[in-house]
Design a protein around this nucleic acid. Structure first.
Lengths: 146, 146
DNA sequence: CTACTTGCAAAACGTTTGCATGATT
DNA sequence: AATCATGCAAACGTTTTGCAAGTAG
């Protein structure tokens, strides 16, 4: 069942925003589109993101309790450092950690398919202020970290 | 606001199962309770799990796309190796990985609050069989890994 | 007696889906 | 013309919540 992926106004818009923002939930995308005056239904956002993931353009990840799509088209594998206050996400890749992970998997007889390392904490800015300076809220439900 | 945590039939039952099973979703817990002939409402399970998490007895984690509670009362911090076919979960702790993680966080000016490393793959048994031998299904939605 | 718990059913939330319509090739 | 994409609203599964009744301390 060969599948032909067409172009479409909404599809291009979504990709453009994704490329800029790097990480975004379906709601985020839908919101940005709305702000820009583009009407794209939420369902379409979800459908397209699922397609993009299937094609390797993006990856779905659970940050806290909501799915965020990570635009991977131009990036290699990497992990995340997430500020629990402002929601900032920093990507990093430590080859040494990667090696150790593979070793652990092997030790336990697993063949690795996917790895996910998320570090949660306070970024320098938020810690400095000692108070919340939420840039983007709702990243984590209370239950997720408490 | 000091909070007094009481004993209750349902609360003890949930804890007992959790201690045995180590990892379980709210639904799992509710199901096991039902099998044992104990009527505990799903809402109560959720409410209690939230409390347990808040008290450090358990931890909520997203395995694939569903929340599983990890009973941590008697365990130190650890990571997970998850078989995407049978759902088996192996816990491990590699101090070296832990050290490197802390180093990465520091490099980026983050103060670490919580770390989460999940490795997904095929366990030895499932790989051997080269076919699914699902012990517990529905662990991952197609979208989660594809 | 007061504070904490429960069951129940309703509501909220994020995500998926069916279907008729519209766009792309 | 055939296939693919969209909007909309309904459907779904999971988690939360309001409330009245019950239980522990």
């Amino acid at each position: 069942m060969p599948y032909r992926l067409n172009h479409s106004r909404q599809r291009n818009l979504i990709l453009a925003i994704l490329a800029e923002r790097d990480h975004a939930s379906a709601r985020d995308l839908h919101g940005v589109l709305a702000e820009q005056g583009h009407r794209v239904s939420l369902g379409t956002v979800y459908r397209n993101m699922r397609l993009f993931c299937k094609m390797g353009l993006a990856e779905a990840r659970y940050f806290g309790d909501q799915v965020q799509y990570d635009y991977t088209a131009s990036k290699g594998r990497h992990d995340h450092l997430i500020c629990t206050l402002c929601g900032q996400i920093v990507e990093f890749d430590d080859p040494e950690i990667g090696r150790l992970r593979r070793a652990v998997a092997e030790t336990h007889g697993f063949s690795l398919l996917k790895e996910k390392l998320d570090l949660y904490g306070l970024c320098a800015v938020c810690r400095e202020r000692k108070g919340p300076r939420p840039v983007r809220q709702g990243v984590l439900r209370p239950a997720a970290l408490t």
